[in-house]
Structure formats: structure tokens, C-alpha cells
Design a protein around this nucleic acid. Structure first.
Lengths: 355, 355
DNA sequence: TGCTAGCTTGTAAACGGTTACATCGACAAT
DNA sequence: ATTGTCGATGTAACCGTTTACAAGCTAGCA
């Protein structure tokens, strides 16, 4: 390997690559040992005032910035956290990621972001990547992953946590919501209002346990009253407004028109409301509609969207804490539930008697 | 430093830390040199069939995964790209980030995400962080940054590119939209319809040149007809629906009610439309409203939102390519414009004659 | 004065890869 | 048979930190 090393003060020809200033340069300028420079960076208190000042001057003068990869190699710790999420295009998720990034940053950790597109194989691939990148911990979404993924993480002793799901019975640590329970609560509310014919516009359930759990929760509520959810009363649509409209069209085209529709999230609910209104249906008079997430506009949209507020920034914050504290060697709770709030607004009401 | 090294086959007591399997382990199992293993990982073609098979067996058997930090240290290249964006909670930005991540991943680069919260000092801090993490390139948003940030990046020879802005005259590479021009086009359209009293609900302009440029573009259009934008005809509000409502209320409370309102983005426009409708105003009869972004629901919302579609995933794709190809040593175009599309929908129309 | 305890500071050995250069054969041309 | 060429493989230096351990120094104390 050709040695491109140059002392920073030396003149280098135009085609030469200047070596970055390193601890050795700082050390030689400050006339101290390289170990002292390292100590200045990591624990200035441990140095005498005189040393500290000399090193500080040199660091500032040379604009020294520590070489992260070298540090990671030496410490066997990268100070990087990875996050694998299906997509970013959702305000709820965005809040989680923002909180995660912020909290990691505050603790001196960087955030590596990877996208799985709701595909467990892609997720595994991205996970391998993050492992190679040397992340110390990983935040996952949901509890449903490629078995190989769990094996990979555990065999390498990489901290990880499933999020958005809360399941004390899961063998894996998790922080999130009781998706099933909250769907049940929402459905129960509708049943309490007198609805007997519920339907759902669910998000795609393949590889997505959150979506599945929400359907199951609604089933639970119905079962509690001796009712069932007909197979064709659940339609699956990707999380887009236009798909919500499609979903509603499919549901009202059935033999029995549902009096209440629970949507996989607010985006689908938005579409469903728009479609209902444009079909001349009154919401909630002719059909009650509800969602999950409590997005920004859920309260603004007439008639106001009944939904379940998910404090996902809190999940991001807790995930950061879980991972970083675990890395510090602390024992963290295995499962943490983040409370959700059922928010009743104008889009749900008592069913109008039918003829 | 205590040596925790153990041969992978050796039995280790419960409290012992097992050393990760490294190239040396693979080499010894395959009975080849460590260099051969490296070659197998990086360029299998250069090995004889026999060698390749032996190494492959060993790699697979031991589940070897390369140590990224060691590679980065040795190669002086981390294969990581950093992105600093203000926030994530916006579908347009999400598309850009998703495309960036995808394209980076395809080229073997990881993505480090950092958030600046529209604060140039925070942005600089995050940038320092990314530099320490050793990113090979950085994607920034906008062209307005802390001067120290530019100096930092240039002095260290880190590739970077400003995005969402297109400015051939900028000294820094950029990929994006002509924010000023597109705002002007939108305003021109409204003026062509016969509007003479325009107003704006802008996003906060501090530290945000995209927002500023959009206001300036509208000013340009007005100036082209000998008109001006009164100071109180521009109100600034954060990008939230409720803020859009507030903005509209402020604008219609003025002496002269504007007949057309251009909003900093679709979210603000959404709020403005909702507020107008709830005040009994007809859109576009009483007031035309337009935005930027063409979010998912812009076409769904009655009466359909006139807006400017920004293909931001394309920006993410191009940014990834710019950075990675630049790192390869290729000369990339200094400024690249991504075309936007003015989309006319029901929220704008000819102004109704006033009494 | 000599000794020890307690700080600071320095020395040098990892960390786990990449890669320049050396080496070694095999094979073709002389 | 000798030499040269070329491709495959090995050897070892180097990337820039951290940190165990050694060494030096000061002060307190017998």
C-alpha cells in the first residue's frame, strides 16, 4: 500500500492526497502522547489543567475530528443504532423515527435507516447489512420477522427491540401498543352505539402483524356479543386515500351494507369518508367510520374522525432508551406498553334505523 | 487491554465474551491465507474454482460477516452516506429519503439519517456527527446552511449535494426544483384566471430558502403585471393543517379579502380549504386555493387541490447517484433540475365578481 | 531519608480488515 | 533447457483509535 501520509504542515503537490489530521498530529503539536489526546476527547476531567489546555489548543487549531471507524474497531462498539421500518411515508412512523434519532443523538449514537417495504426477505437483507455496518442495536417494527433474522441478531449479541407491538408473551423484547386490544375497544364502542354490522378496510396483512391484530381485535369484540366478522366484510387495501375509497365501494356493494367501518389507519379512513360523502352517504348517519393514528388532520376534517391516537414518538423515545441502556449493561423491561387513547369525534354515531 | 480472544471452536465460560468470527478464522478453516478470503469477499472471480469453493464453504459454515468498521478503517471509505433533513413528517420528503436509501443500498452504501429541525446550528452539529461517523457523502436539503458546514465538508473532501433546490448559479452542487420559478408559474396561472388580489400562507422562512423562494416567485409573477404583494398578504405558519386554517382566518380578516391564496405546501392548503368551507366560503368561487407537493389526497379532496407535483423520489435517486458516482471519481453535473408539474384541479378558478 | 499511595502521563499492543509487493508455478517461446 | 510472462496465492504493513500496563512524579508520613 502506497504511503500517502504527509505531515499536515508539509507542502503537498496538487495530486497528492492529504492525510486527515489524526490524534498523532494533535499529540505532536501539543507535545503530549497520543494517549493523552484520547483522554482529552473521552474524559477531559482526567487530565491536569495544563495538559488539557495544550491539547485543547491543538485540537481546535487543527480542527481535529475523531475517526469513528477506528474508534469502533478499537472499542468493538460502533455507537450506531439501526432502524428497519417498512416505509417512511407515514406521519406516525415519522414521529417514531424522529424521536429515535433525537434520543440516539443525545446519547452519542448515530442512526442507520433501512427500509423493508413490508417484505420479510428484504428486511432480513437489510438487517444483514446493518450487522455488517456494525450497529450496536436495532429497532424493528412489528414482531413478525424472518426467523433467520432473530437468529442472526441473537447469535451476534446485537441488542434489538420490536416496536409498535406490545406483547408480554413474546419471546422478544417489545415496546408498543396492544393493537388487538385497541381494535377491540374501538369495535366495542361501535357495538355499544348499537351497530351490529361491522366491516373493515384493513391494511395488507401479509407480513404485518399489526394489521392482523387489528382485524383480530375487531373479531374479538364481535365474538363478545355472539357476532362474527364475515370473510367478505374485511377488505385489504394499501394505506392510500384512493385505496380507502375503493375499499368503501367494495364494502357497500355487498348484500348487506355495514353500518360501521373500521379502517386500518386514518389514511384509509380518510378515503372511506370521502367516498361515502361523494356517494351521497351521510357520515355517521348512514355509516360510521373510524381509523387509527390520529393524524394531524383527523380532528380538522369534517365531521371529525373517530380514531385511536398512537403516541408513536413515545415509542421511538423508549426504543432508543431500551437499546442504549441495554448496551450499557442495564436490565430493561422485556415488554413495555404505550397507552393509546380512543378519540371519539363526529365520524361515528348511533346507526340510523334502516327500512 | 485484556485479550478476550477465543478460537471460535473453543468452549467459553458463561461470562466470557466470544470473539466474532473474523477473516482469520475463515482462512484457517479453509486452509488459505487471509488475503484469499478478502479476495473471495470482494472479487470472487479472481480466485481459482478450488479456492473459491473452499472459502465459500468456510464462510457459510462459520456465518462470517465482514466487519464494516475494520473495512472502513483500512479502505479509508465507510460506504455510508449521510442525509440531513429538517423533519421526516412529510410525505414528499419521505419519498426522497426512501429513494435515497434504496439507491444507496443497491450500490452497497448505508444511510445515516440526521434531523435538523429547520435549525442551521443543529444542522451543523449533526453534520459534524456524520463526519465523525465517517460518511463518504452527505445529502443536504436546501442551499442555505451554516457557512462552517460548507467549510467542514470541503476541507475534508466529503462529497455533498444540496437537494430540493435547483440553482445553476450556486457555488455548490444541487439537485432539485426551481422553487421560485414554479411558484411564479402557479401565481401566473392564477393571474391569468383574472385574480388580482393574491395572498400567501407560507411556511416559516427562517433558515428555509425553499419557502423564501416560493414567496419570491409569487412576487415575481405579480411584478410582471405591475402588482405587488403587500407585507400583510403573506402570513407564515408551520406546516400543519390547523395552522393552514389559522392562516386563512388571518388573511380574510384583512381589509381586502384575497381572491386567491397560494400555500407553502398542500398541508397548509388543506387547512385553508377546510377553514374556507367551514366559514361558508366557496372554493374556488369565493377564494381559489393552491399548494405544492401533490400529496396522495390532493386529487381526492373535493374540490380537488390545484398544486405543483414535485417528483421528490427522483431527487433522492439522483442524489444517491450524484454522491456515489462522485465518490467513484466521475464528474457529475453541478446542478440538475427535476421538472415539476403544475396540476390544475377544482380548488382554483376564475374569481367571482365582487360587489 | 526512604517508602508508599495516588495521580498523571506515556508506551505499545490490539481491533479486523485491504492491498502492495513478493513468491510460486505453469506454460509458451526461444 | 532456459527464460519470460502471467495468473493465483501468500506475507505483512498499515488504517487511527482505545486502553492495559508501566513508569514517573508528588506529597505525605514514618
Amino acid at each position: 500500500m502506497v504511503d500517502r501520509r504527509r505531515t499536515p504542515d508539509a507542502h503537498a503537490g496538487p495530486s497528492e492526497v492529504l492525510r486527515q489530521v489524526g490524534m498523532r498530529d494533535v499529540a505532536s503539536r501539543a507535545q503530549v502522547s497520543i494517549a493523552t489526546v484520547s483522554r482529552f476527547i473521552n474524559d477531559p476531567e482526567s487530565l491536569s489543567m495544563a495538559m488539557r489546555e495544550r491539547v485543547e489548543e491543538a485540537v481546535r487549531h487543527l480542527g481535529y475530528i475523531r475517526h469513528g471507524a477506528a474508534r469502533a474497531l478499537s472499542m468493538r462498539r460502533s455507537h450506531a443504532i439501526g432502524a428497519i421500518i417498512p416505509t417512511v411515508d407515514n406521519a406516525t412512523r415519522a414521529g417514531k423515527i424522529a424521536a429515535l434519532q433525537k434520543n440516539c443523538h443525545e446519547q452519542g449514537y448515530n442512526l442507520l435507516l433501512a427500509l423493508s417495504e413490508y417484505d420479510l426477505d428484504v428486511e432480513l437483507q437489510q438487517c444483514r447489512n446493518l450487522v455488517e455496518a456494525g450497529v450496536d442495536g436495532i429497532m424493528l417494527e412489528g414482531g413478525l420477522h424472518h426467523p433467520e433474522l432473530y437468529h442472526l441478531l441473537e447469535s451476534r449479541g446485537i441488542a434489538f427491540v420490536n416496536t409498535i407491538v406490545y406483547d408480554p408473551k413474546s419471546p422478544y423484547p417489545n415496546i408498543g401498543f396492544d393493537n388487538r386490544g385497541m381494535a377491540r375497544r374501538l369495535a366495542d364502542h361501535l357495538l355499544d352505539l348499537g351497530h351490529t354490522s361491522l366491516a373493515m378496510i384493513s391494511g395488507p396483512r401479509a407480513g404485518n402483524d399489526r394489521a392482523r391484530e387489528r382485524v383480530e381485535g375487531v373479531r374479538d369484540a364481535l365474538a363478545g356479543r355472539g357476532l362474527t366478522l364475515a370473510p367478505d366484510a374485511v377488505v385489504e387495501h394499501p394505506y392510500r386515500v384512493a385505496e380507502g375509497r375503493l375499499g368503501l365501494r367494495r364494502l357497500i356493494a355487498r348484500d348487506t351494507m355495514p353500518t360501521a367501518i373500521i379502517c386500518g389507519n386514518d389514511v384509509l379512513a380518510f378515503g372511506a369518508i370521502l367516498e361515502a360523502q361523494s356517494q351521497g352517504l351521510d357520515v355517521p348517519g348512514d355509516v360510521s367510520i373510524a381509523g387509527f393514528d390520529d393524524l394531524d388532520w383527523a380532528s380538522q376534517l369534517p365531521p371529525g374522525l373517530t380514531t385511536v391516537a398512537l403516541p408513536s414518538p413515545e415509542v421511538g423515545r423508549l426504543a432508543a432508551r431500551y437499546l442504549i441502556d441495554t448496551l450499557k449493561g442495564e436490565t430493561m423491561p422485556h415488554a413495555t406498553e404505550v397507552e393509546v387513547r380512543l378519540i371519539l369525534r363526529g365520524s361515528t354515531g348511533v346507526p340510523r334505523p334502516r327500512g
